[in-house]
């Protein structure tokens, strides 16, 4: 279990997450992609904290901040989904095509 291995796993998670966030039409699925990216970020932060830098307390703080970001992303995301659904009766990103212009 080396730092390099952890970073590779996190890179795979971020890659899959980016694919999901870009490719999915459904808002909720898109948010899953974003969550996966944050999952990778969390792993990187704790990996550096634990194996790279000898456990400085601020590394754990960064992980806590990442978790807070996840919670905020979920809450605002679901609120947006609800708002879009009210207006367009759909939860797909294509439902918002009027925003292009």
């Amino acid at each position: 279990m080396t730092l390099t291995a952890i970073l590779l796993v996190a890179a795979a998670l971020i890659g899959i997450g980016l694919y999901g966030a870009l490719s999915q039409q459904s808002f909720v699925m898109l948010m899953m992609g974003l969550e996966l990216i944050l999952n990778g970020v969390l792993l990187i932060a704790v990996g550096f904290w634990s194996l790279g830098l000898g456990g400085p307390p601020r590394g754990q703080l960064l992980a806590i901040v990442v978790m807070a970001v996840m919670a905020i992303e979920m809450a605002v995301g679901f609120a947006l989904v609800t708002a879009v659904y009210r207006k367009r009766q759909a939860d797909t990103t294509e439902g918002l095509e009027t925003m292009k212009h």
Binding site: L3, T4, G15, L18, L22, S23, L51
Partner: peptide, 25 residues
């Protein structure tokens, strides 16, 4: 999207492999 995902993995993976990482458990 597939391209972006693969590129992100390749880029981050290369960064992880090529960087001289600190080792202080």
């Amino acid at each position: 999207s597939i391209g972006a995902g693969v590129a992100a993995f390749a880029g981050l993976g290369a960064a992880a492999l090529l960087t001289d990482l600190p080792h202080h458990a």
